[in-house]
Nucleic acid binder design. Structure first.
Lengths: 337, 337
DNA sequence: CTGAAAGCGCTTACAG
DNA sequence: CTGAAAGCGCTTACAG
């Protein structure tokens, strides 16, 4: 058990009890070489008996590793931060590195201050987690430690950014609809200013074109909400009643679409198939019918970002990595029987 | 700008450039007393010119404060951790304390290891964030630093726990329904083994009793999902068609209820009012009609937990604090015109 | 108001 | 294989 008293036990105490020098005690407890098995056993025993708890701070001071990184989220509130954090956690845990979690709350000044504080604490790297996939201003090149942008991307190509491949993600969705035989596909998406909305639209259009198809009607941009999904679906149904599928820019929008289709007694997917993007389980798994969608693999994205920090030749690999998503098939495109 | 080179600048360098001793430089940069304004100005200038970045690690070593706490979540995946983390972040930020975020992933052994690692890093306190409000095994009394349980509660009364007042939260919901004139109220909730489900039921029953009312039909327990909300609502409608309100144990369940009512052309709230618990915005704000619910105030809960860690007489105040929620009125009980 | 000295707990060359 | 010594970067009594 780790108790209060332990905090008072230092390496010197352990060394004394084991009748060795502090240097030897240090080696015995850390490196595996240069210590006789007998001595090591003695030191280890002393450490155990005393309930010795090494002080990581002191170790860091010696110029060695601090074993910490900083994670600055721009907005913890958003839905994307969490899975990314999980991935970061996962990757760091394996190396016994700890993450300082900081929330800039969308405030640039606060972000800068956090950055500075993290440097003071001698973090070995910093991950900036954005709340959208758009470009954001670079924090600069001479931070002193590796820095990587996750989800968002830096506007400076010398920085390393890991983001979602919006184009690919949408292509996968479109291809799936084509694969199940749909030919008259409408597209409803979120906020046009977001690169996510624009790139996804491009992915859809290009993929359809590869099969000699065109979108049924103009793509509709609004926001990423259920409400917009409902409104847009009603519009689409009026303007293009011939459609046999709706490709939605997000799961929230898709939920709205499903809602309206159900209300109008249009069977999904028999008459109209519906597909979302995000694989937000809460939304996708609980709808009627359950929603086919594209998983963004955010946890993986977080893991990659964390690994970049400790990648020896990360410097060579600056620039933006676009990470692919994968389709998750549910009943809104291929119903189970 | 904070640059790579800075990492090499120490207090000694600053002192030299300012022509003072290191001790004086330290005082000039930290404490406000015992240094002449002129000297301080000189030191500050030197520090600025050199781009001096104090090493927080060394400061911590001196026996002073490390300015760090550990936060161990049992499951980042859950929906409750995030708002709590935000509150923690908020409270700590004011004191320039940083939080190590660790995810135990529901693994007790891993949790213990994390606890130990955090102690090695000399955190000044630890917050254990549970993913449900039930009791959990205490981590013990002699950790060496203050420890507080948030959302979940420790089974040892000597520990400090901050959790949701499930009884009050449900009472508020019930009272609201009574206030708008409902008398025949059904209750659909989540998993019976969860104290959240049981205490909420008690709150509902007692509050109704205070007004001389009884629940319409037996309370229904299932899980916290939309699917269960739909199934249970259908049952309730069959067995107790006379009801004029449904009090749901969570917003997810309420979404399911709303869905079925809409399908059956039962107007909400005119014929049947619906209320949830959680105030999960995504769900509550986007339903049709929008959902009245009880906000759990989780951010506040996180803030309180963080403050406890630095509360001088926290020792006296062991035990469990039950934090109240507050109603958020939307269209499912009082429609806007 | 200022500074020399000791110490925080550890690790790392460098001798033996 | 073992140990004495120096040093990591800072702060804190203690003299002056």
């Amino acid at each position: 058990m780790t108790t209060a008293k332990d905090a008072g036990v230092s390496l010197a105490d352990v060394a004394k009890r084991a009748n060795v020098s502090q240097a030897t005690a240090s080696k015995a407890l850390n490196a595996k070489f240069d210590v006789s098995p007998k001595t090591r056993a003695r030191v280890e025993r002393a450490a155990r008996e005393l309930g010795y708890v090494p002080n990581t701070l002191a170790r860091g001071l010696t110029g060695g590793r601090t074993g910490t990184v900083g994670v600055i989220t721009s907005d913890l509130d958003g839905r994307f931060a969490l899975p990314i954090l999980m991935g970061v956690e996962d990757a760091l845990g394996a190396d016994r590195v700890f993450a300082f979690l900081c929330d800039a709350r969308g405030d640039d000044l606060r972000e800068r201050q956090l950055l500075k504080s993290l440097i003071q604490r001698r973090v070995e790297g910093i991950i900036i987690v954005g709340n959208q996939t758009d470009e954001r201003p670079s924090l600069g090149q001479d931070i002193g430690v590796p820095i990587v942008y996750a989800y968002c991307m830096s506007d400076d190509p010398r920085d390393r950014s890991i983001t979602v491949d919006n184009y690919q993600v949408a292509s996968v969705a479109a291809q799936h609809l084509i694969d199940i035989g749909r030919r008259r596909i409408a597209h409803i998406s979120g906020e046009a200013p977001h690169s996510a909305a624009r790139r996804r639209k491009d992915g859809v259009v290009d993929t359809l074109a590869s099969s000699g198809l065109e979108l049924s009607g103009e793509p509709l941009f609004g926001d990423w909400s259920e409400g917009w999904g409902r409104a847009a679906t009603a519009m689409v149904l009026d303007r293009n009643p011939e459609i046999d599928a709706i490709l939605c820019g997000s799961d929230q929008i898709a939920r709205g679409a499903l809602d309206v289709l159900r209300e109008r007694n249009i069977s999904v997917p028999q008459q109209i198939a519906v597909i979302g993007i995000d694989n937000w389980e809460l939304l996708a798994a609980n709808s009627r019918p359950s929603l086919t969608t594209v998983d963004l693999n955010l946890e993986r994205l977080g893991r990659i970002a964390a690994q970049c920090l400790y990648d020896p030749d990360a410097a060579d690999r600056s620039g933006i990595s676009y990470e692919p998503g994968a389709i998750v098939i549910r009943d809104s495109t291929i119903p189970r029987y």
